[in-house]
């Protein structure tokens, strides 16, 4: 099996535009409106509302994480400057906003294992996409 090795990555992110803006609310199901942003730190309590596992909570257990993330068979991409939490997601939850207890946006969920969740820092997402709240 050959491994395709990408360059180091900071984010796995994209912008989507709704076909009809009336289909979208500017608040998160089970969470409510976003109250600004906050930089993720060790020990921070976090939550997300995702398509597969719904509303779940966790804690930032590691920062400055470099991780080898699998994309299908044999495809591995290295991500740096990630946040790592305990198990709080499964396949299909990618793209969930990750917030602190005060509903401040801190990250974008995109990967995980049976025991961990890997989260892009929201400041890196905003910088990569040229967007802000």
């Amino acid at each position: 099996m050959t491994k395709a090795q990408a360059e180091d990555n900071l984010v796995n992110a994209a912008i989507a535009t709704p076909l009809n803006s009336a289909d979208i609310k500017d608040e998160i199901f089970n969470i409510g409106p976003i109250q600004g942003t906050v930089s993720g730190e060790l020990g921070m309590s976090i939550k997300k509302s995702g398509r597969t596992t719904g509303f779940t909570t966790g804690e930032i257990q590691q920062v400055d994480v470099s991780a080898n993330v699998q994309y299908g068979a044999g495809q591995v991409a290295v991500f740096t400057d990630q946040l790592l939490a305990g198990a709080m997601s499964q396949g299909g939850d990618s793209g969930s906003a990750v917030l602190d207890e005060g509903n401040r946006l801190t990250g974008l969920l995109f990967a995980g294992s049976e025991t961990t969740t890997i989260i892009n820092r929201i400041e890196n997402v905003f910088s990569a996409l040229g967007i802000s709240l």
Binding site: Q61, Q62, N68, Q82, L84
Partner: peptide
């Protein structure tokens, strides 16, 4: 140290925690 650690068999992450 992380580049060397990430090359070792089975290593998938290196981060800072407690």
């Amino acid at each position: 140290n992380e580049a060397q650690l990430l090359k070792m068999a089975g290593v998938v992450s290196v981060g800072i925690g407690l």
